[in-house]
């Protein structure tokens, strides 16, 4: 039974694409056939983070419009056989996504893949609604900051009211909270909301905590999902997250400041 997982947040720049790339790569590395779809039509980014931007010929919108078939648009990852990327169109806008078109493509993908990861655009408009509409599960990406938390709350409301599962009154979309860019030292100094604060406000189970880490930027710029960098704390945290998504129990790491990690950062380790 394949699962459709939307990575969403409401607010922009909190780590949706980074998360989509790493979760998809992590699931594929564990042998699950996985496809990751970029729903951010017009602001195509996922292909860059996945390092396949020079291999994009056809895209999601081409397939919806019948200008290409799914096989022509899917890009196979060079590092992992089980992983495919469906890139967004850069020259169209979100209105190119129709509910029927997206539904048909997801139905086809379900035949071939175990996991379908939908990388949502920011906002609560049409593009984001299309990304979450068919979801079985949602990874709500949040930064420990009040505006990000409030926007995530808004998206949770949308998941409960505007998704297919809500409309058909099926079992609700399973919600997971992923807290990104967490800096324990700044929580201690009171600059940042704590894990408990965020978990209390959003009141959904935590699937992971990704520490603020220089490796994320480096990974994005080099086109390698950060989960591939198992030396980095962010890479390890994504690995934990993927394991939890697959039902494993792992303790939450990087909640408090790690002295060694800080020194490592100082010496560029």
């Amino acid at each position: 039974m394949s699962k459709i997982i939307v990575v969403t947040s409401g607010k922009g720049g909190v780590g949706k694409t980074t998360t989509s790339a790493s979760i998809a790569m992590g699931l594929a590395q564990k042998g699950h056939k996985t496809v990751v779809i970029d729903f951010d039509i017009g602001l195509r980014n996922l292909d860059l983070v996945m390092g396949c931007e020079r291999r994009v010929v056809y895209d999601f919108v081409n397939v919806i419009n019948g200008e290409a078939n799914l096989n022509q648009a899917l890009i196979k990852d060079k590092r992992c056989d089980a992983l495919y990327i469906l890139p967004a169109s850069q020259t169209r806008d979100k209105d190119a996504l129709t509910r029927e078109g997206v539904g048909q493509i997801l139905e086809q993908l379900k035949q071939r893949f175990d996991f379908i990861i939908c990388d949502s655009p920011a906002g609560i408009e049409h593009g984001a609604m299309m990304a979450l509409y068919y979801a079985d599960e949602a990874i709500v990406t949040t930064n420990p900051e009040v505006s990000s938390v409030r926007d995530s709350d808004r998206i949770l409301g949308m998941l409960q009211s505007r998704s297919l599962r809500a409309e058909r009154e099926l079992e609700p979309v399973k919600e997971h909270l992923l807290l990104c860019r967490y800096a324990p030292s700044r929580v201690d100094s009171g600059d940042m909301l704590s894990l408990d604060d965020v978990a209390e406000i959003l009141a959904i189970p935590m699937i992971g905590l990704i520490p603020e880490c220089g490796s994320v930027l480096k990974a994005s710029n080099s086109g390698n999902p950060v989960i591939l960098d198992q030396q980095s704390s962010a890479g390890q945290a994504y690995d934990d997250t993927v394991a939890r998504l697959l039902g494993e129990q792992r303790p939450m790491r990087f909640v408090t400041e790690d002295k060694k990690g800080w020194l490592q950062k100082l010496f560029g380790g």
Binding site: I124, D151, D153, R154, L156, G157, Q160, A203
Partner: peptide, 8 residues
């Protein structure tokens, strides 16, 4: 019996 979210 479910959380009432921002915007609802």
């Amino acid at each position: 019996d479910r959380p009432v979210r921002s915007g609802q």
